[in-house]
Design a protein around this nucleic acid. Structure first.
Lengths: 189, 189
DNA sequence: GGAATCATTTGCCATTTGGCAAAAAGTGAT
DNA sequence: ATCACTTTTTGCCAAATGGCAAATGATTCC
């Protein structure tokens, strides 16, 4: 829990009592490498905050190939697709790339927090908007550059990730084949 | 105003009085082709809803080349980057691709609406989350396919746009050169 | 109607990336 | 240390895309 509360407090203030209410509803979950936090076609029943580890969002294209949409790192709230109320059934998978620890809330408790704690919605709104916008920017820049540049940018933006993630995932995120990425890396060193 | 209110009502309910309050603060703006709604480095002072026309978001990369990040069509609220409260200075331009009409609110009035009308924030939050998520999905899929596929997908997703937008903008959105796009089109027909 | 301007297409060639398969390197369990 | 397995690198060649410049087509303005 230690890291979740400070994270939230960056986006708005909460009283000690409010923090207690929130904390009382949280529980800890460990995902082993390759386990899923969400699966395509299944209703999402929990909200998570990553304290350790890395997740990736991927989907299968029409040819049945896996494509990594993006990664979610430590100290990030997983709210892709959520507005907190409406039920959400993703069309993609959310999978642990490494062993991962999360602080988790049931969707029911999450809703209760939203109804109980004034200002909570506004905090979540800020987090959501900021988060999605960042992702969108990053993704946009990936479209218009050659593969080597995209890789270098990836290194810059996620310096801590490269050594913890299989190369194939990175390639798939960058939209190139694994072989191409391998060749690019050779030229860079 | 006719189209803005129904748009908002898709995401939540409002009383007639509330609608009147909102309407009273709106005014209409016309942008001519190539005029800007935002500019990089300038604080955003208004919120707009496009009733007619198309805008595009673009930025200059390190080489000074324009890159189109995406398009915003009729019947969409322009809330990229806004959480409604914090001041926002974009790093990109928001430009009219065609002559465009908007329903506009000053940021001050927008804030007042948010403070006056219960449920407003929740509506905006839903719109923001849905909107950004859609954009992110679209953008992600652009990364991992060859140019022809990307173009075909663009045609599917924005069937009404192609004939109203210069080819160069589409190419820049897809992350390819104008010549390549031209050749791709030749092969498709 | 014609000149000027802007948008799109085309040709030519260089470079990048993909596809496929095999080799090499790395990892983990026994 | 060895075997089985997974991940990463390479080689070879084909296909896709870029860069540049010129040609063609469209539009606007006088």
């Amino acid at each position: 829990m230690k890291s979740f509360i400070p994270y939230v407090l960056q986006f708005g203030n909460l009283t000690t009592q409010q923090i207690d209410v929130i904390s009382s509803k949280a529980y800890e979950v460990t995902l082993h490498k390759d386990e899923h936090f969400w699966e395509a076609g299944k209703v999402v029943t929990k909200i998570g905050f990553i304290t350790h580890g890395i997740l990736r969002v991927f989907y299968y294209n029409n040819e049945g190939e896996e494509h990594t949409r993006y990664f979610i790192e430590e100290n990030h709230l997983i709210l892709d697709g959520h507005d907190g109320e409406t039920s959400y059934t993703p069309s993609e998978y959310l999978q642990a790339v490494t062993d991962t620890k999360l602080v988790v809330f049931s969707k029911k408790d999450w809703k209760e927090i939203s109804e109980t704690i004034a200002g909570w919605d506004s905090i979540i709104q800020k987090i959501t908007a900021t988060y999605l916008r960042k992702k969108l920017e990053r993704r946009s820049q990936l479209v218009s550059q050659d593969a080597a540049t995209r890789y270098l940018e990836f290194l810059e933006k996620f310096p801590t990730l490269v050594n913890r993630i299989p190369l194939s995932y990175v390639a798939s995120y960058l939209g190139i084949t694994q072989s191409s990425l391998s060749r690019i890396r050779k030229n860079i060193r």
